[in-house]
Design a protein around this nucleic acid. Structure first.
Lengths: 146, 146
DNA sequence: CCCATACAGGACCTCAAGGTCCGAAACCTC
DNA sequence: GAGGTTTCGGACCTTGAGGTCCTGTATGGG
């Protein structure tokens, strides 16, 4: 599994908010129902993104979640970093601590560019770009259609 | 974590066997000491590779492990498949079941080539090639030097 | 034959991620 | 300000990976 379950949920939730593109807040209850994610667990997950400054939240009636910035200024990499940390983009494929250009493992020279490719994909993808693809056509965020 | 702990151990063990390149068998005890892997856990891990036909084993005095085929005919992909399964090479980055070219998730078009890049790296790397790099120079399989 | 050696494999323990639940706090409407 | 709605945040349960231990069984040497 390349991303943790929690991180998959976080990305899908962010894409949902970006694709919804409505003024005001979206309730966690609604997101959880639309995306098929257990509500209490989603609650915990969005707290991480809220404290990371990616989401904002409002309690009370008409409360809910919203993106803290325009979707075009939020990259998927940012979300992955907030939830899973930098491990995916920095760690040695063999799990050897301190593996790097100076003291490489036997796979470092091959793994390093492949890892960079994955990193660049997440860094280049903004919520706005990806959300457009969601609205455009046959793409989906949940088991069924969006 | 891109590979499970178990899989990291499996790859390092295979590289150790390939780099040792001695006739006869190498004891699990020796590998566990050299690589800093808990012996009982390595035992279990090695059984998977043995039953997958990648290692052979021999009990009793002078027993131990050996590669079942020449190191040039064993790819790292084969080891990953045996231990972690095909998930790394096939699963959707958002964890959506059934994501594919027909019913893609919003990230499928970007993730698919990045995933292919990772796949190709593991498929192209043979134990022989990688072991040569281990013997050659400053590469390492354990926390310290090899 | 007998015994030391080494893998095979089952039973068990530990721990963190995943998942659930409920009360507290904040907010809006009336 | 009273009450309903919604997130916040702690406490708890479950599950599977990671890790340990012990007995069984095969092999080779004395």
């Amino acid at each position: 599994m390349i991303l943790s379950h929690r991180c998959e949920y976080a990305v899908r939730t962010a894409l949902f908010l970006a694709a919804a593109d409505r003024s005001g807040y979206v309730a966690v209850r609604e997101i959880s129902a639309a995306l098929g994610i257990p509500r209490p667990f989603l609650s915990k997950t969005v707290q991480v993104l809220t404290s990371a400054g990616i989401f904002t939240s409002m309690r009370g009636p008409a409360g809910g979640l919203a993106l803290a910035r325009p979707a075009s200024q939020i990259s998927l990499k940012e979300i992955v970093l907030a939830v899973d940390g930098a491990g995916l983009f920095t760690e040695c494929v063999l799990g050897l601590p301190g593996c790097g250009d100076r003291t490489p493992c036997p796979l470092h020279d091959q793994w390093s560019p492949a890892r960079a490719r994955v990193h660049d994909m997440f860094a280049a993808a903004t919520l706005a770009d990806t959300a457009v693809r969601t609205q455009a056509g046959d793409f989906r965020l949940a088991l069924g259609a969006l």
